[in-house]
Nucleic acid binder design. Structure first.
Lengths: 145, 145, 145, 145
DNA sequence: TTTT
DNA sequence: TTTT
C-alpha cells in the first residue's frame, strides 16, 4: 500500500483559544480556523468565510497552547484526516479535519488576548513550529517565537 | 477582507465513477477519493485509508466525466470548502470537501472500468487538466490526455 | 503530454521593492524573497536564510508594484520555472525562479518603506491577490487589501 | 527568527538514475526531474519542459537509490533550497534545488530499467516514502512499495 | 546534461 | 459554535 500525497496549507485566524487536553500523556490541542475567500464574479466582489477544524499533537500542541489564541493569524501545514466514529444511536459518522504538522504564527493584528492572561505572550515575532516528535525541523525550546 | 491561502494537494484513487450533473448550465462532477496513509509506530507498520469528497466544475468536470472513473489514480489540487446547509428538520449542518481546481490523471494500474464502456478511454497517458473557465493553464480540447 | 503538478508555497519578506517593467504591454514585476529556516540539530539551534527570485505578471504585478515593498511579509503561491538563456559568450545558462500565481500580503512588522513614498500604502490589511488574467479567484479592483 | 513556510510539490520523471553518494556516513542521492507544462494561449496549445535538481538524504536516499530510476514517474514533496558556493575563480555562485522530504513512486509507464539490474525492482506498486530520520510518517523497512 |  |  502506498503512502499517498496528502497536503493542506492554510492561512487563517483562530476562532477561539486552542482547547488543550492530554491523551495518554501526549498533548493535544483542537482549534478552528476562519479562512476567508474573496473573489470576483462578473464584476461583483464576493466574500465567504470557511471554518476548518484542526488538531495538533505533541510539542506543537504545547506551543500552540502557550502562544496561540483567539484572533491570531496563523499559517498551517498539515494533512487532511477523516475522523470516523459511532453516534450514541449506533450510526456511523465521519468528518474531515486538518491534522496540523507545522504552524507559523504571523504577526497579524488580531485582537489578541481573549481569555485573560495570555497577553504577556505577545512577543509578536513570527514563528514556524513543528510537531516536535522529531528533532529536525523545529523551533527553540525556550523562545519559540 | 483578505483572500487567505487555502491549498489542498492529494493523490488517491476514485472510489466510484464521477457523478455528473448540470447546474444552471454548468457542468459539475462529484466524486470521492481514497487516500492511503502508511506509517510506522514503534516498529509496527500501520495503514489507514481516508476518504475525501471532491467537486469539480466547468470544463474540468466535463473532462473528468469523460476520462476519469472508478479506480483511477489521480493527483488533485484545489482548496478546502465548507458546505453548509439546513437539514430537513431545520438543523444547521456542514461538511468539508475539496473544490478541485486542477487534476492530473496518473497512469496507475487501478482496476479501471467498473461501469461498463469507459474501457475505451484508456488512452493511458497522464494528464493535467484545470477548470477551464480561464484559458491559461489548460489542456487540449480534443485529446486532453 | 501531461500537465504535471508543480506547486510552490512560500512565506518570506521582500528583500527590495518589486522591480517593475512592461513587456509587450503586460506588466511584470521581479522581486526576491528572504525565507528563513530554523531547525535544531542535536540540541543546537540553527538558522539559515534562503533567497528566491520571483516573477509575477499582469494585474498581480500591478498590485504588487503598488502595495508591496521592501521588508513586507508575503505568502506566495506559484510554480517553479526554469529560465534558460544564452550568455553573451554563447554558453547555455539556466536558473530556477518562482512564477507567482497568487500572493497574500501579511500584516507583518517589516521595516516597511525603503524607497520613499510608499509609506502611504500602509492600508495594513492582509490581502490575497491573484494574477488577474482570469476573473475568478481575484481581489477587488479598487481596494485590493 | 521564524521558520517560514517553504513547500514544493512536483510530479515528474527522473531524467537519469539517482546519483548516490555517502557524506559523513549519511546517504545522499541527487537527481533531476523533468516536469511538463501544457497550456493554451489564444487557442494554441503549448508545451514546455522544466528540469529541477533534487536532493534527498538518509533512508529516503537509500530507497530512491534502490527503487527509483531513469524515466520513473515520481511525486515529490520538499522545500526550496538555495545552495551557495564559491567558484574556483573565487566568485560567489548559487543555485536553487529541491530538498526532497517525501517521495511517492507512481505506477507510470516509464521506460524503466536503464542502468542494468534494477529491472527486478519493478514491483510496480505506488509508494510514499519519507526521509526516515524520524519514525513517524514512513514506509516499511523491507518492502517499501 | 535531460523524462514520457 | 466562530476570526479580521
Amino acid at each position: 500500500m502506498a503512502n499517498d500525497l496528502n497536503k493542506v496549507l492554510l492561512i487563517g485566524r483562530m476562532t477561539r483559544d486552542p482547547e488543550f487536553k492530554s491523551v495518554n500523556g501526549s498533548s493535544v490541542v483542537n482549534f478552528s480556523i476562519a479562512n476567508n475567500r474573496v473573489y470576483v464574479t462578473n464584476g461583483e466582489k464576493k466574500e465567504e468565510t470557511h471554518y476548518f477544524d484542526c488538531v495538533a499533537w505533541g510539542r506543537l500542541a504545547d506551543i500552540l497552547k502557550q502562544y496561540a489564541g483567539k484572533g491570531k493569524q496563523v499559517a498551517i501545514e498539515g494533512r487532511l484526516q477523516q475522523q470516523s466514529w459511532e453516534t450514541p444511536e449506533g450510526k456511523k459518522a465521519s468528518k474531515i479535519r486538518v491534522y496540523v504538522e507545522t504552524a507559523q504564527l504571523l504577526g497579524g493584528q488580531g485582537q489578541g488576548g481573549g481569555s485573560g492572561d495570555r497577553s504577556d505572550s505577545s512577543s509578536s515575532y513570527d514563528s514556524g513550529i513543528s510537531s516536535g516528535y522529531d528533532d529536525y525541523p523545529a523551533g527553540d525550546d525556550d523562545i519559540p517565537f
